[in-house]
């Protein structure tokens, strides 16, 4: 069921993790289509393999079998450097624990994807423009006063907003969110959710959001439910 709207597709994806005395199957043949411009929620209880699926879709991890097709090309066929390139240019990530680099301040964290994606010589040419963009993203996230703060000097909500600004730095095609509000209080959660949905509204950014929070899943364009390593239901939100 190839669809024009499909930007990312998982076909019969399995993932086994080796454990003591055998293997632990975490994903047991998952099929999933992600449509351009939608917010797809992947819901389910913790431990069902949502995050593993997200990591495989985002190419942070490789599937044990099956394939992931992005924009018509099979990602399994790419080299590690090729996959890094796709992550750098096309994907942005937000995590439950923000995962900012503690040695760098807010604006440096936001600049990091641009630095990674740019060669050394070219970097000196584009640095000014990149700093401007990083500052703009942080200001948009309401952190204009916090540019030089280290992650340890920021609150949880602020950290997650820096992480979002960082994910957007290289103008990604798909935003991957792994329990983005899992570690925040309800008020801050709502702010972060509003920010993600705002991005989708403004620029039609394709977003995949892994959550166990039903209220977030309900707001999504579509929701895919997982139970025990399998997709059980896909519904339009």
């Amino acid at each position: 069921m190839q669809d024009d709207r499909t930007i990312l597709k998982a076909v019969e994806v399995t993932k086994d993790f080796p454990i003591e005395g055998g293997i632990l199957p975490v994903l047991k043949g998952v099929n999933l289509d992600v449509h351009k411009g939608e917010i797809l929620a992947i819901a389910g209880k913790s431990g069902v393999g949502k995050s593993t699926l997200l990591h495989i879709l985002g190419m942070l991890d490789v599937p044990s079998s099956g394939s992931v097709v992005y924009d018509g090309s099979d990602l399994a066929k790419l080299s590690t450097a090729g996959r890094a390139e796709v992550r750098s240019r096309h994907f942005g990530f937000i995590f439950q624990f923000y995962h900012l680099l503690p040695e760098f301040n807010a604006i440096e964290n936001v600049l990091m994807p641009a630095m990674i994606g740019t060669g050394m010589l070219k970097w000196f040419a584009v640095r000014g423009a990149m700093r401007k963009r990083a500052r703009m993203l942080l200001e948009k996230a309401g952190l204009g006063e916090r540019l030089r703060h280290r992650p340890s000097q920021l609150s949880g909500g602020e950290r997650q907003r820096v992480a979002i600004a960082r994910a957007l730095m290289n103008e990604p095609k798909i935003l991957f969110c792994d329990e983005p509000t899992g570690n925040l209080d309800s008020k801050t959660s709502a702010e972060i959710v509003e920010m993600i949905w705002g991005l989708n509204r403004e620029s039609g950014l394709t977003t995949i959001i892994v959550t166990h929070d039903e209220s977030i899943a309900k707001k999504a364009t579509r929701t895919a439910r997982m139970v025990d390593g399998k997709m059980v239901q896909q519904s339009s939100g």
Partner: peptide, 16 residues
């Protein structure tokens, strides 16, 4: 280890 994972998610290659 965690920071290296983050760098990977930000597009860093293994060699990098």
């Amino acid at each position: 280890t965690r920071d290296l994972g983050i760098l990977k998610s930000l597009g860093g290659s293994t060699a990098g």
